[in-house]
Nucleic acid binder design. Sequence first.
DNA 1: GACTCACTGATTTTT
DNA 2: TCAGTGAGTC
Length: 807
Amino acid sequence: MTDPRRRPAEPAPERPAPRAGGIAARASAAAAPTPDYLNGLNPEQREAVETLDGPLLVLAGAGTGKTRVLTARVAHILSQGRAYPSQILVVTFTNKAAREMKERIHAMVGDQVEGMPWLGTFHSIGVRILRRHHELVGLKSGFTILDTDDQIRLLKQLLAAENIDEKRWPARLLASTIDGWKNRGLSPKDVPPGEGAVFANGRGGTLYAAYQARLKALNAVDFGDLLLEGIRLFRENPDVLAEYHKRFKYLLVDEYQDTNVAQYLWLRLLAQGSKNVCCVGDDDQSIYGWRGAEVDNILRFESDFPGARVIRLERNYRSTGHILASAAHLIAHNEGRLGKTLFSEGEDGEQVTVTGAWDSGEEARAVGEEIEALQRAGHKLSEIAILVRASFQMREFEDRFVTLGLPYRVIGGPRFYERAEIRDALAYLRCVNSSADDLAFERIVNVPKRGIGDATVKQIHDVARAAGLPLQEATRVLTESEELKPKVRGTLRGLVEAFGRWREQARVMSHTELAEIVLDESGYTEMWQKDRSAEAAGRLENLKELVRSMEPFENLSGFLEHISLVMDTDNGAGEDAVQVMTLHSAKGLEFDTVFLPGWEEGLFPHQRALDEQGKAGLEEERRLAYVGITRARASARIFVASNRRIHGMWNSTVPSRFLDELPDAHVRVEESRGGAGWGGSGYGGGSYGQSRFDRAEPFAASSYSTPGWQRAQSNRGRTDSGPSRGGFSERGGRYDAGGSARRGPMVIEGTLVATSTGAASAFNTGERVFHIKFGYGEVTGIDGNKLTVQFDKAGEKRVLETFVEKA
DNA sequence: GACTCACTGATTTTT
DNA sequence: TCAGTGAGTC
């Protein structure tokens, strides 16, 4: 993240430092030069940094410098000698936030940050504590942490054992139910009987208890347990808790509005010691209620921590006046907030725009054109973001950008460690690391396909249960008997022997080498090499990345221990590409220009939020809108489509109520080029009869008269054949309907067929090609620069020649 | 045990 | 519309 308003690196020059130890130095201690880390803080920020004693709640609105306050506070505690680095607990929600915090503290205090073992996520600190006291919560050392996938498989087994129809009561549902209980700090015995009865005709509570028992038997915990077991540890062992009370002199919590009950309880137990707990958050940015976050935690802070001070940060350093005013006016429609009034001393800037489009396709085209205009005007693509409510919206933009040849990057989506190939690879390594890791063994026993089916797996299970052995052992026993068919027996024996061999090799070679050998010899790499689908290449690349990511670790178990908690990769960061992501994953980020498409009733606010959570749901959606708008520094552009395809059916839509909640004075309504917009298309939403969006303003007010566009026009001659993207792809996309407002020469895609050489296509029919999106295929037809390709997986498609390469 | 076809359901996502 | 899943067939 970049902060353009970073404090000056140099201390104020006009104050010479007093001679060390001199009388003057001591005498002027109170009026000592402002330490570096305090420079440039506004009075409220400074107060938040310097109020060290007792509970403190910092209500930090969007863009008010909350991370800066947190980091400066750590620096202040250290420089005042109030605590050693190891006596400060700093908790964040994500690994990314923890990493950034660490970097920023490092920038202030240097290597002292290395002595801060207690800076991390709730979960990573939770594990740390559990590992130290595992025996007190009934775990053996080296317990494993299950991810969601493992959890589901375990629950499926339980459901099957209980003869519960998985069709009616899916394991997924049970997993999220249990998760919900854990988020609320409820262990099986605490679940209210009525609630436990909801699942599977009254067996929910029992299943939860059985699940916990299975976890213990496997010497495993899930994510929820990392906190829940911690709470139990503290409650049942006051001496252990006292030890942590003594240790943690200061506690700092980031994004407090996102804490759930379990995290709150955990924190409160720890905070009872020094009482120097500082929570930073913004109730207006609480958007994770659906996964257990309790806004109440922040609303109740003062009563939970008696004597608490509350400091509000309301001076916004990020956005221009119009953007800020729009966001503030919108969020003011929420009740039940602590209330902050953001203000900025910067310029008013550009108004927030609302643009109507005929349908989602036109919406994507309009956004694409605006981005191209911005790009020509010299804006960096990485400073442009598209923030959507739901991920299905991304597709249309991706398609468009591929057509335009516009570099983009999707943020979020399945995370690295969630990818099947990574989990498979990890499962192999887990099996090597511990022969008792049954879930891992089960995962890979038939990956790649070895002809080991359900029946065989069941046999192994039976032996394991009867003899009380882990699956790997049971398999070995089974292969020594006559029970299996010779072929299966041979396969399994080979596998068990391989694990034995790898375990031997683990002693003599580095863990990265070992990983490569395991993936090779198991046939796993080969499996993907043979796969001809579009993703295969990426998956192999991911496997390489996995091995690379092992390097910094000392050994295999060290790597595996951290992997389940910290496994996000910053792949491709830094390249200049448009950022596409959901509103949720945009929290905490900022961009010069933010596009906010899909502001329609049902999508945003999302129908499901309204149906399931009613008013609370609506308010959370509104906070999401607030988060979206406040991501923008200079330009926020909202889009509405009057028609959108939902589940394959075209529906006409009603503009979002949030649009009517924006302040007139700060918003400019535009019409999408093409004139097809939805203005006056019979919208009767809202209780005011006519919405102001029914009177779209004349085109003169369009975004293309903005300074950016004017600059773009004057630059056009130079940039049209610009350096960024070659050839016709840039124009190739601009063939959409309605050329009335088209800038530059209108180019119909077909006229681009003859490229400069005038030569025929570089491809021949029958040739094998690879397409970034559709994978491998065979050319079946050529029409100028367009190829008809029969893709192995995606079927027949017409694609531009530039997007395929020879396979 | 592997492959194919029909069915279902479809926000947001971290650890 | 479409992807992911489970039952049914070879």
